[in-house]
Design a protein around this nucleic acid. Structure first.
Lengths: 247, 247
DNA sequence: CGCCAGTTTGACCAAGATCAACGCAAGTGG
DNA sequence: CCACTTGCGTTGATCTTGGTCAAACTGGCG
């Protein structure tokens, strides 16, 4: 329940964290945060830049300070799948065993903390309790993945898109406005659909008054009827699958 | 790299492990195996029986001694998704945080070791190195899930079925005969397809001479041309995604 | 033998993909 | 300032993959 952990932003002396950070860690936690601070270095990337590539040596793990990162994997014929979007506080690149199994790319302008694997290893050896944190985070993410597999394997286009809107809304802690920093193509690749289908479903929701677009902006959507969205992708409990972690 | 870990069977004084176990652990490992033995209890289930249910309190984790277990999740309208098949040596039920997020059912006659969470916690506190093992296993499984998400989100029916045959073949360490203890319906729910589509793809492979059924048995398939199967689901590296773990 | 559960095959259907065109805002260069 | 381009989003027409429905087949078993 401490850093690096999703849904929580670093209390950083570099003041890179959004000031919206609301959770005040106790002194014990601050120690641990501090430990991570010590071994991490700040890195910035512009939208479209690659943070690491599929197959790269897994010499570092990351945590997002600000901006959005997509974790994606390509098939040789160009088909793409995005396994995860990472927002401020989310971690990625931790599950690599012998090289990263996917690439990480900046969606917009991104600031990340980079933790060298060797330093992480040392840190854990000095403070075994940190390993417990990492383990818990990973278990949590593995549980979250259950839901995504169900979504990709068994849910309809409408259910996927509704589910996506609710997921993003929950993860960004917004009540009825959802910011979508990623393109429609990114969303499609995340949901296992095509860009046209994503558009059509969004249009359908608009027509039904369930959502509205914050015209002329295409990257912001207003949830007019959250209950209706939830009903659409009902079926499955929306409890313990929000949040994400290592990749 | 020790127990509980997939692809390796317990050296048990209850001699429940298939005698095909080939890896001889060193004395250090035997200690750890022994530690797990101490806190685990043997349980048996008949095909179709439920080991635990979606939503159950996560008071135990499991390792398969023999037989096959399916981890599955239901939508309210009956749609089902199987997130994992567990064979001898595989672990399941470890990623539950506040209750199991899916149910576990015996596919055929199954023997498992059951590890109470409390005992696991104690064991880890006494021997922190075990936590590292659990963490590694979970990271490994998270990496493996990448491939399944790509499969469910972006691969065609033929690619899914071919990929499945290769996965099972690899995981069961058979060269050209694949045993399929699960039904076609199970396979379909695992691959995000219908039973008819699975049948049709299998028939197509048979017609093309890529596979053959070990008539009259429907639960055994012969891989006549493994290279062709690999070519079909090529695209993606088949390296580090074999094996599975907590659920 | 007849029943049963699982599998296979065929005919038809529909969700979503593909192909194509258009809209629209933000550059860019004259 | 205005043409022109470019990248993304939206919409429509059409096609294909895989789903649905239905029937036949198979082996096991009382």
């Amino acid at each position: 329940m401490l850093l690096p952990r999703e849904g929580r932003t670093a209390i950083s002396r570099f003041k890179t964290a959004p000031s919206s950070s609301t959770i005040v860690p106790n002194s014990k936690q601050v120690d641990r945060l501090d430990a991570w601070e010590q071994i991490g270095t700040r890195r910035c990337f512009n939208g479209g830049e690659e943070i690491y590539s599929d197959g790269d040596a897994a010499d570092s793990s990351y945590r997002v300070v600000s901006g959005t990162v997509r974790i994606c994997k390509l098939l040789t014929d160009g088909r793409r799948h995005i396994s995860k979007f990472c927002f401020a506080g989310d971690c990625f690149g931790w599950s690599a065993v012998a090289g990263h199994a996917a690439s990480a790319e900046a969606v917009d302008h991104v600031v990340v903390m980079r933790y060298p694997q060797r330093a992480v290893k040392c840190l854990i050896e000095g403070e075994p309790r940190l390993l417990r944190d990492l383990y818990d985070r990973t278990l949590h993410e593995l549980g979250a993945v259950q839901h995504r597999m169900m979504l990709l394997g068994r849910m309809t286009a409408a259910e996927r898109v509704a589910s996506f809107l609710i997921e993003i809304s929950d993860r960004r802690h917004t009540c009825n406005a959802v910011d979508l920093p990623m393109t429609r193509t990114d969303i499609a690749d995340y949901l296992g659909l095509t860009i046209e289908t994503v558009c059509r479903e969004l249009s359908k929701f608009k027509r039904d008054g369930i959502i509205a677009s914050a015209k002329p902006r295409t990257d912001r959507i207003l949830l007019r009827d959250r209950a209706a969205l939830e009903a659409i992708c009902d079926s499955d409990a929306h409890d313990h699958w929000v949040g994400a972690a290592a990749a």
